[in-house]
């Protein structure tokens, strides 16, 4: 394994995030390479220093806490308002609205169905009747001839 490859994987090696075989190969290289060992030491120093830096956190003062508490209460109040229970009056209003919407839908449905029924064409009906009557006459005449 080349030094450049090892130094590329150094961060992951320190974090223990390499797969088993790569971790072993990097470890083996590090044991035999002074230059990479120095790089490893620098990496460990840097990581330790950042972790030390991260462990210093600012104090949260009472003023900040109070400001957050006020905003939090306000948010909870708004949430409660949005999900307030249905009162009897509101229930009747909702039921009435729902019934009205359903009635309008039913009327509209009946109208649409009714308008789709085709009216009978009277002329066509009379023509067909006429044809049937003539057919009867022809059949009767044929019977008489045969008889």
């Amino acid at each position: 394994m080349k030094c450049s490859s090892v130094q590329k994987w150094l961060s992951a090696y320190v974090d223990g995030k390499l797969d088993f075989w790569r971790q072993r190969r990097v470890g083996k290289h590090l044991r035999n390479c002074d230059e990479c060992q120095i790089a490893l030491k620098r990496e460990q120093e840097a990581v330790a220093a950042v972790q030390q830096l991260v462990s210093h956190n600012p104090e949260v003062d009472a003023r900040f806490r109070a400001r957050f508490a006020a905003r939090f209460q306000e948010l909870r109040r708004r949430e409660k308002e949005e999900t307030r229970p249905v009162t009897p009056v509101r229930r009747w209003v909702l039921a009435g609205t729902l019934a009205g919407v359903m009635a309008v839908c039913a009327i509209a449905g009946v109208y649409i169905v009714h308008s789709r029924i085709q009216p009978v064409d009277e002329k066509e009906l009379l023509l067909n009747l006429d044809l049937y009557e003539n057919l009867d006459v022809i059949i009767n005449m044929e019977r008489m001839k045969g008889g």
Binding site: Q7, K8, L10, A12, I38, E43, E45, A46, V47, V50
Partner: peptide, 20 residues
Amino acid sequence: YKTVLFRARGLLRSHFAEAG
């Protein structure tokens, strides 16, 4: 993320090497 992290750590490392 790994690429960004490794580059950033590389910068830190090179800084430490320089300081050393």
